[in-house]
Structure formats: C-alpha cells, structure tokens
Design a protein around this nucleic acid. Structure first.
Lengths: 213, 213
DNA sequence: TTGCAAATGTGAGGATTTCTCATGTTTTAA
DNA sequence: TTAAAACATGAGAAATCCTCACATTTGCAA
C-alpha cells in the first residue's frame, strides 16, 4: 500500500475535477470538449463515446481532456449537471406564481410540455441519463436531484392543500415527479404521435392525483 | 474490407449466441457462468463485472465463456431475459382469472407486490436493467417487452370496460405499466419504509386511472 | 522589459480489459 | 471403432482508459 495521494477522492465514487479552468483559453477548450462529447453521445450513446474521439473532435490532446476531467464519467456528469440545473430553473419559474388550483393545472401542464420539448430537442439528455443509471454514485446524485425537484411541487401543494398530510404529500409529489421523468423518457422513445398521447395521459393522471379530478 | 464472415450479425447491435449448449455437460457449465455473473453483478454492478472473473468463479476458461456468449452484453441480456420471462409469467397468472373490477383491483395490487418483492430479493435485476439502459439495442428490446406486458393489462381492461376507446386504453395501459416499473425501481432505491409508501401510492394512482376511483 | 511560477498542453506508453483463434479433448452416433 | 461434431483452453491480439514526464503559454511582480 503506497501512501501516494492521487487526484481523486473528494466524494466516494465521484472523482473530483482535476482542475478548474481559470484562464479564458482553457475555458473555451473545456467548452469544446463538452460540445464534442455531447455530439458523440448523441450519435452513439455515452457508452460508445471514446475519450480519444472526444479529444480529436474538440481539437485538443488526450492529455488536455484529463487535465480537466478526472475520468470518462466526469464528462457525462458535467453534461448531466447542466441539464439538471436547466430543469430546476424551469420548475421554479413555472411554479413560482401559482395561487390556485386552476393556475397549478396550467402551470404543471406547461412544465411537462417544456420538459418534453427539452428532451425531444436534446437527445443527449436521454443518453446522459442512461449513463448515470449505470453508475451507482451518479444514480444517487440523480435521485437527490429528483427529490429536490419534487420539493418544488411539495411547496406549491402545501399552499393549495394546507390540510393534507405532509408525509403523504411528499410521497405523492416524489412519485409523480419520478413518473413524469419516466413518462417523458418513454415518450421520446416512441413515435411522435404516441409520445404526445402518452404525455397527455401522464398529465391527466398526475393532476388527478395531485389536486383531484 | 475483407469478406470474412464473423459470428455476429443476426440482429443489428445484438450479437447472436455463438452456440447453444447441446450437451448436458455444457448446459451445466453455462448455468454456472450465469450464476457467477449474477453474483458478480449483485456485488459490484454490471459495469464492474469482469469477464475473467466470471470465468474464474464459474470454474471455466475465458474461452468457454465466449463459446456461448458472443460478448459481455450477451450475458447481461441472458439474465435480463430470464427475469422478463419470469415477470411475464407473473402477469398472466395474476390477471388470467379476473372477472370484475374488484377482482382486478386485488389482482393488480398483488401483481405489483410480487414485482416489488422480486426486485427487493434480486438486486441483480436492477443492475441488469441499468445495463440495458446504457445500450440502444437492449433498450429497444426492453421497450418491446414492456409493451407486450402492457398488452396483458389491455386484454383485461377490454373485458372490464368494453365501451372504452381502445387506443386510449392501450396508451393508458402502456403508460401505467411503464410507471409501475419506474415506481418499483424507485422504491428499492430508497429505504424500506419510504419504498413501501411509494408502492402503495403507485397502486392507488394506477387503479384510479385504470378502473376509476 | 524581464524573469519566474503557475497554469496549461502534449502524446507516447503503461495498465487493464475484451475478445480471438489455433490447438487439444470429450461426446455422439453410425 | 472411428470420424465428425461439440466442447475446452489460454496465450496473445486489439482496443481502450488514463498517467506522467516534459514542453509551452500566461499572468504578474520586480
């Protein structure tokens, strides 16, 4: 056992960024790396993405890639983080000003549509998600994100239904949120017509559960 | 470009079994290989499973492994097939003799419980599923299976609600089924108490959607 | 401007893993 | 008994991830 301290080991299972780009030049290069990775994942899936190919397409050396990303998963995770941040912004924006049940219904519907459109427009998201599913540590973080998102729903529902059991509300919101993600992923996996039907069916189902028929 | 014909290429993306074990001896060896793979996946996840380790633990050579499985994914897929077959049997058994709405409710509830218990007892299933998600071809097969399972639901629902729109029934059943899978996977990812609550919440939600309050 | 330290860039090669194939052994069936 | 088919083996070819010693560029204080 050598005591040599390696670059990893900030969180168990997740290697920390080896270094943050502090210069303008390197920030641009990191952007190119992520763009190249995103394109490759969209083409072939995250599993088939090759680090050498990412480097080549970004116009950098393989060494530069590892200068900013400790390993392959870190690239997938960096992309995933962007989309979770984006979706969090969507949710809080959509639900912020909900005052009554009718307002909630339309806000929720709109929210689901935005999600659906986001996934349709960026097939990368789907593959990034697949990549995270195959990895225990990433899955845990994904789950935590999902829980955090559900909290937005809980906050609104507590206003709309102040007499409801908080624990049940929490459970329902978490479940409905997770199912929304599943529904959207399912919808983009089938043809457009069926996908639209599935999303609409999900909305009905979710709203019935959240605020009654 | 050489014209050499390799063993793969029955279906696009899915390598075909190189050879089916026809002798008793080899059938037993294949069983040992699958058991070893299953154990390793349960311990570390399908991604961390090493072919050499599978061979060693099964007491066979690496060459024998590749005699029956064209590649690593094929092992994961073979395990996945077993569980999908098992779950299909569950569904048809549970729904076969449903005659009225009350019977459907209890059968559905029991079905979900069986699924939940199956996933709790065999963490392999979860990892097998993660493995298939990371792969486009396997995902397509998984989706086809899910659709086939939903057909069982559709068949029963058509009996119970003969006046309902068939297309809507189909959509709803597919969605509800897919969400059930998502709910169970979610439930086994959290602590037992919350998992139980989530599964119960899913049952309520699904039954309300399928046969009304 | 100059000089130096920190940040960044590079790619050959070490380490690991999947999978092949030539060769040897066992089983089947006529 | 014997030939053919099925099965078994493991060294090593091929592919891939990642490291590391060294080169270059940038920021900045003197």
């Amino acid at each position: 056992m050598d005591e040599k301290v390696t670059a990893k080991a900030d969180q168990p299972g997740i290697a920390s960024p080896r270094r943050s780009p502090s210069q303008q030049r390197s920030r641009e290069r990191v952007e190119r790396m992520l763009a190249a990775a995103s394109a490759l994942i969209a083409e072939q899936g995250s599993d088939a993405m090759r680090m050498g190919e990412v480097a080549e397409r970004a116009g950098v050396s393989i060494g530069s890639l590892y200068q900013f990303f400790p390993d392959k998963r870190a690239i997938v995770w960096a992309l995933a983080e962007r989309y979770t941040a984006e979706s969090q912004a969507c949710i809080s924006a959509a639900l912020k000003d909900v005052r009554d049940v009718e307002g909630f219904k339309s806000a929720f519907s709109e929210l689901v549509d935005i999600y659906y459109q986001l996934f349709l427009a960026e097939p990368v998201i789907r593959d990034v998600w697949s990549g995270t599913q195959a990895d225990k540590a990433l899955r845990a973080l994904e789950l935590a994100d999902s829980r955090a998102n559900a909290e937005f729903l809980v906050a609104v529902l507590k206003r709309l239904r102040p007499d409801a059991d908080p624990v049940e509300l929490e459970t329902t919101a978490f479940l409905v949120w997770q199912m929304g993600e599943a529904a959207v992923r399912l919808a983009i996996s089938v043809d457009r017509e069926e996908g639209d039907r599935l999303v609409e069916a999900y909305k009905r189902m979710a709203l019935r559960e959240l605020v009654g028929a």
